[in-house]
Amino acid sequence: MEELKENLKAAIIEALNLEDVNAADIDDNEPLFGDGLGLDSIDALELIVLLEKNYGVKIENPEDGREVFQSINTIAAYIEKSKK
């Protein structure tokens, strides 16, 4: 799980071009949208693509992304759950 989270942070930083952010700076529980990392609706779409391409996990409805993309912890949990 820890490895998955680290891997996920690196992938998010690269995909969303968060040049000024280090993986270590992202708290596992930190909100990714709004006040936290400040991501927006386009980033949510990018995250859907990332999850499918990197982890083979599909999110059919962008609305479902809201729940999944709350934090690194929620995304990692979703990936783990989907793989089982």
């Binding site: 995909a15 779409l45 990018e46 693509v49 391409k53």
Partner: peptide
């Protein structure tokens, strides 16, 4: 197929 939207927008 699956495309990331940022470049398009």
């Amino acid at each position: 197929g699956l495309l990331s939207p940022t470049a398009f927008i």
